[in-house]
Simulated assay, not measured.
Amino acid sequence: MRTLMVSSFFALIALPAVATDYQVAMDNYLETNIRSWAQNPVLVEAISSQNQETNGLGQADVDALDTQWRAEVGTGGSALINDVLNNDAAEFLRAQVEASGGRITEVFIMDAQGLNVAASSATSDMWQGDEAKFQMTYSVGSDAVHFGEVELDESSRRYQAQISLTIVDAETGAAIGAMTVGVDADSLM
């Protein structure tokens, strides 16, 4: 029993070191592999365009869209989901996933409300505005970055970490939305 307690203690001490290693690896991956395309004009234009459409939505409207999305995920015939998956920005995101050679598991961009604009594949919900990936980026400002915990992604059955960052308007420097990139955890270490 004492051996189990001692080894458990040392395992707990090592957890912050592992978390720090992942944080450093995610920061490196962001700087060397994501920043170069994160502000691509096709992404900025897609977010700006959707912001014009969703600017006046209230929380009840956002909740209704999210409820509709959740009900339609996996049905194969949703106009709401198809609009997010079938646009120029989504094609660009899928190209980034493909170019990563398996390191990127998913990518999606969100508007100023936290609603999906484009995605490489369907997400489980449409509204990200209630999650840290959006709250710790768009709401914080133009240079904000958020590194999520390493978690098992249910759809891919792979461990991934999410790197999220604010997307800005190139002309004004103002935050217009956010992007989340899922990165295969094994490829980070």
Rank of each mutant, 00 (worst) to 15 (best):
R2I: 15
M5S: 15
V6D: 08
S7K: 13
S7R: 15
F9V: 14
F10K: 12
L12H: 14
A14I: 13
A14C: 12
P16N: 07
P16G: 05
A17V: 15
A17W: 10
V18F: 11
A19L: 07
D21Q: 10
A25I: 02
M26F: 02
N28E: 09
Y29N: 10
L30M: 14
N33C: 11
I34H: 04
R35Q: 14
R35W: 14
W37G: 09
N40D: 15
V42G: 06
L43W: 03
V44H: 00
E45I: 04
I47R: 03
S48T: 13
S49M: 09
N51A: 07
N51V: 05
N51K: 10
Q52V: 14
Q52Y: 11
G56S: 14
L57G: 03
G58I: 01
D61N: 08
V62F: 07
A64W: 08
A64P: 11
L65R: 02
L65K: 06
D66W: 03
D66Y: 03
D66E: 07
D66Q: 05
T67Q: 14
T67G: 13
Q68K: 10
R70G: 07
A71F: 08
A71R: 11
V73F: 02
G74M: 01
T75R: 12
T75C: 06
G76V: 00
G77V: 04
S78I: 01
S78R: 01
A79Y: 01
I81G: 00
N82L: 02
N82I: 03
V84C: 13
N86Q: 08
N87V: 05
A89I: 07
A89Q: 06
F92T: 11
R94P: 04
A95I: 08
E98L: 10
A99P: 14
G102P: 08
R103S: 11
I104D: 02
I104L: 08
I104Q: 03
T105G: 06
E106Q: 02
F108V: 06
F108E: 03
F108A: 03
F108L: 10
I109T: 11
I109F: 11
A112C: 12
A112I: 04
Q113Y: 06
G114K: 05
G114C: 10
V117K: 01
A119C: 11
S120Q: 00
A122I: 05
T123C: 11
S124M: 09
Q128W: 00
G129A: 02
D130G: 11
A132H: 00
F134L: 01
T137Q: 00
D143E: 09
D143K: 00
D143G: 03
D143T: 05
D143A: 01
A144S: 08
A144T: 02
A144H: 01
H146T: 03
G148M: 05
L152H: 06
D153V: 03
D153T: 05
D153N: 08
E154Y: 07
R157D: 15
R157L: 13
R158M: 12
Y159H: 06
Y159F: 12
Q162I: 07
I163M: 08
L165P: 09
L165Y: 06
T166D: 04
V168A: 13
D169Q: 02
E171M: 09
T172K: 06
T172A: 03
T172C: 10
G173D: 10
A178I: 03
T180K: 01
T180H: 01
V181N: 01
V181M: 04
G182F: 07
V183G: 00
V183M: 01
A185T: 01
D186V: 12
D186A: 15
L188W: 00
M189T: 15
